[in-house]
């Protein structure tokens, strides 16, 4: 209601000004020159003309003053916002000044948040680095220890072989660790640029399955894929196949021999869902979110190899592409991971 009235007032003002400024003086001067030259009439017209001029100047000064006041108010508020003070005088009013000031405050908030975010990013990176250092330390000190033992000349031949084997295993672990850390830190620091293309999901799935098919064969796990080859999604083939492989890798790892893995690709309204179901040991509902955390290992899984990076990386890859992962599981019966990729 208020707004309508204000608008009406504005419009009336505009018309009045138009009439006063142009039409009346024009009409006045026209009359002045077309009338028969009677000096009295001419003076009257002249006076009217002058009157309008005065009115005109009055209007001009009035609106100029209003405008200057508005600008000053906005400037004063801008200075206040720069000093990081909030006074709340101009909040929640239906005036132009209030609108501008609230927009300015919003801008300040957004910029402040951006700054805070970049600082958070820096802190996160620092944390990643220290975590990397920590993770690398264990196998490294193991290698050193066994190396020290090996340098003992009195060591028995059989033991030597065994220790060499341990060192080799530790080195492999180190290599695996560093590989995954490089991957995750790349994701973390936005060093990779995703090259999105509208490609076939089936082909990407093929790449991922090839990566784990040997492991699955060894455990005689049956993999069934239900995917229409024409289904497409906007995704980065290399990284997405990596994400899917990480999830499949887990499925193989935690599914007992002769188990089953079933992959369905379903097209939805906005997303393409890649559903990976296994018949493994399952995840307790309270750990649904923990499993995506970096270096999280489920207590019961601590003896299996792994670092707790696979799902973390997978989630990051999918989130960076505008998708998300959901998990649903029944303990002892199996887990179901759903990857959603934007269509």
């Amino acid at each position: 209601m208020d707004r309508n009235r204000a608008e009406l007032r504005m419009r009336v003002c505009k018309y009045v000004l138009l009439t006063v400024n142009i039409l009346l003086p024009a009409a006045g001067s026209l009359l002045l020159f077309t009338q028969t030259p009677k000096s009295r009439e001419r003076t009257v017209f002249l006076i009217i003309l002058l009157l309008f001029c005065a009115l005109d100047i009055g209007y001009f000064l009035y609106f100029r003053k209003r405008f200057v006041m508005f600008s000053e108010e906005v400037c004063r508020n801008a200075e206040r916002i720069m000093r990081n003070e909030r006074d709340g005088i101009q909040l929640n009013k239906d005036t132009l000044t209030s609108k501008v000031v609230m927009e300015l405050e919003k801008m300040e908030d957004i910029l402040g948040n951006r700054l805070a975010e970049s600082e958070q990013g820096k802190a996160k990176l620092q944390k990643t680095i220290s975590e990397i250092a920590h993770q690398v330390k264990t196998p490294l000190s193991n290698v050193r220890m066994y190396h020290d033992i090996l340098s003992d000349p009195d060591i028995a031949g059989g033991d030597k072989e065994r220790f060499m084997e341990i060192i080799r295993q530790q080195l492999e672990k180190l290599e695996f660790l560093i590989d995954s850390l490089i991957k995750s830190s790349r994701l973390e620091s936005d060093m990779i640029k995703l090259s999105m293309e509208n490609g076939s999901v089936f082909d990407t799935l093929g790449i991922s399955v090839n990566g784990i098919v040997q492991k699955a064969d060894r455990k005689k796990i049956d993999i069934a894929i239900h995917c229409h080859p024409m289904i497409k999604a906007a995704h980065d083939v290399k990284w997405t196949s990596e994400a899917i492989e990480n999830i499949l890798d887990n499925a193989v790892k935690y599914t007992p021999e002769r188990g089953k893995i079933r992959i369905d690709v379903i097209r939805g309204e906005m997303y393409v869902e890649i559903k990976i179901q296994d018949t493994g040991k399952g995840i307790a509902a309270e750990h649904y979110n923990d499993i995506f955390k970096r270096f999280y290992r489920e207590p019961s899984a601590s003896k299996d190899e792994g670092l707790g990076l696979g799902l973390y990386i997978a989630r990051n890859i999918i989130t960076l592409q505008g998708g998300y992962i959901m998990v649903h599981s029944v303990l002892g019966q199996g887990s179901c991971f759903s990857l959603f990729l934007p269509d």
């Binding site: 975010e117 939805g268 997303y271 979110n289 505008g322 998300y324 959901m326």
Partner: peptide, 30 residues
């Protein structure tokens, strides 16, 4: 699931704060 995923993704993309109420535990995981 799609709407929630979208809500979550747009919230992150446009740096919005979101508060959602739901009775569905499964939906809350995003």
């Amino acid at each position: 699931q799609e709407v929630i995923g979208l809500l979550c993704a747009t919230g992150k993309k446009f740096h919005q704060t979101m508060v959602m109420i739901t009775h569905n535990e499964k939906i809350a995981q995003v």
